[in-house]
Design a protein around this nucleic acid. Structure first.
Lengths: 340, 340
DNA sequence: CAAATAAGTGCAAACGGTTGTTCAAATTCT
DNA sequence: AGAATTTGAACAACCGTTTGCACTTATTTG
């Protein structure tokens, strides 16, 4: 309805120029004290608020960061978002939000929408199927830096924050070994994810380290869907010699695997024990939490990713940007026994 | 580094005016076919993309909707966000995201940040402590319509989407009665929420309807924190005549109450049965899901809220806006037996 | 007391587009 | 052929704010 007050209106009411008003409002020293006060008083009275759109437009800066994740329904990512938001707010940035639903097409679409909005930067955790990065490379032309977190590409020349799960996985196998388990199965995630490779390598190293024979029959894969996880679990249970322990890719895979095992009459954590990655709050309420988990710090990863992005943006503004410098933050998680 | 191509550069390279380029790109009929093609070809070659910031600025429209919720970590809200996002994307809107963490101060801060960003509209689920609406009223001056969902204020002159839980609560009490339960306790949420009032009224009506005596000792309250819920459960268990059934405000209260009860040696769903509101995916994995829940359609509420907001925005643009028309969408949920 | 300096403002361009209006050339009509 | 019309493209204003520069007074300074 009624237009919002602008600097121009203040100017004309006071018979001064817009530049004077602009300077008066920002306490520019060249503006006389009386003018300054008059302007500020009127601005207040009229309920003037600077139009951020206009300012951002002029400054070619939006103070908006795009955040793209596979699915907000996964507690892991909702925790991550919280970390991202906290860091963003601290630095006056806001968050433009989008989900890929693990679909590369949708991922591309939201990334493009964000490009359109001219976000200052982008934080993304890849869809599990993404194997081309064109849509993200396109952001370079637009001078929009990208920080990957958790589900990062294996590329070297990108900014990223992630957990290196290799060591922790070795440790986890060792933990199981010490508890007396020898047949240790592993349900891994999609190949394309760096995380899957690390986990697999950790598993292999862990098994070797205990001088056990590596049996690839014990290594299954899931695309993270319930069905796929059930199929993997089914295969494992169908072995002549089923495993005594199962390591699962993440909490959701864990829950689905456990659920399936129970249906098959397995006495969970008795016939077969389960351990997993990620230690989420919800775990405490589930029927069969993993005996131990590997904490992946979703909140911390999100926070660090945002901080990294802000650092990059600041360098850019200061003109200190170097094309070939890529930041990498690698966290080394450890085992946590689950607190029931 | 290298600036992005603008309409101006295209114009100068082709020796035509910017207006011609602008029109050529938007297929304006007054532009000759040959010029049009030349322009579009060059635009493509240069990788031109319109600067949405500039356009939005001129059109005084951002295509950004602010979304404020208490906490993304609650699955209820992450589901709601998904619904909101789906509807938004369909209509080319994007989502600016913020959490209040159930803190009125933070809520105010994020609402103000969104006002600064000149969002086209706002969707909000109130913090459980919010009792003043100044920060939201302030948006009126900025012509930013607000749609409340789920945690809506009791005010009449606002747009809102919510579940009316009165009827479902009556039904739930009836269900328990039919199963033979007579001493039915109720752990309710914060007073200020409309939802709490509806539930309480439903409870009272439900109990009366079965010709049972209303015993206010059986009605406890929680601020939704774990401690508060435990305290409420503690009180109920300390009664000379503890309840045989407990209705809890939501899933989280349910889980905390159950956890506490177990610690006190209660055999859940044997000594005492538990029923709850909200039927979330995670429930299927929990140790003691409620026997029945009242589905609150978080996804649907989010989606409807977004659709409502878009309708309002469209009316506004068409100039059909009426100051005193307020939309209200009331959903009437029903009981669902929990699928384990 | 003229000249240099400082203080206080205004002018105008710029950010990247859109759009109403104007203007010239080409075409059609009478 | 001259008038009327259509076609194609340029001009210019505008959105709200910032900012370099110029300009006018007043105040110092030599």
């Amino acid at each position: 309805m009624d237009k919002l007050p602008t600097i121009k209106e203040i100017a004309s009411k006071l018979n001064v120029s817009v530049s004077t008003v602009s300077r008066a409002l920002s306490n520019h020293p060249r503006i006389g004290i009386s003018t300054r006060e008059k302007v500020q008083a009127l601005a207040k009275e009229m309920g003037y608020e600077p139009n951020a759109q206009a300012i951002f437009f002029k400054q070619k800066k939006t103070y908006v960061i795009g955040v793209v994740i596979p699915s907000i329904r996964e507690e892991f990512f909702s925790q991550a978002i919280s970390g991202i938001e906290t860091a963003a707010i601290e630095h006056q940035y806001t968050i433009l939000f989008g989900q890929s639903y693990d679909d590369p097409e949708k991922e591309k679409a939201v990334v493009e929408a964000m490009k359109k909005q001219r976000v200052d930067g982008l934080i993304i955790s890849l869809s599990k199927q993404t194997n081309k990065y064109d849509h993200l490379d396109a952001l370079k032309k637009f001078n929009i830096p990208v920080v990957y977190f958790d589900r990062v590409p294996t590329l070297e020349n990108v900014h990223k924050v992630y957990c290196n799960l290799y060591k922790a996985t070795v440790e986890m196998v060792g933990w199981l070994f010490n508890k007396g388990y020898r047949k240790i199965a592993f349900i891994n995630g999609p190949d394309k994810l760096q995380a899957s490779k690390e986990r697999l390598n950790g598993y292999i190293e862990g098994v070797s380290k205990q001088k056990l024979k590596i049996d690839m029959q014990l290594v299954e894969k899931t695309d993270l869907s319930k069905e796929s996880t059930q199929a993997a679990m089914h295969k494992l249970l169908s072995l002549k010699n089923p495993p005594k322990a199962v390591i699962t890719f993440n909490e959701y895979v864990h829950m689905d695997a456990v659920q399936y095992a129970i249906k098959q009459g397995v006495r969970v954590n008795k016939d077969i024990v389960f351990v997993s990655y990620a230690n989420l709050p919800i775990t405490g309420y589930t029927a069969y939490p993993p005996l131990v988990s590997i904490e992946q710090y979703p909140y911390g990863q999100g926070e660090k990713a945002m901080q990294m992005l802000i650092k990059i943006l600041n360098k850019k503004e200061a003109g200190e940007e170097k094309e070939d410098v890529f930041y990498k933050e690698e966290l080394y998680p450890t085992l946590v026994a689950h607190t029931v």
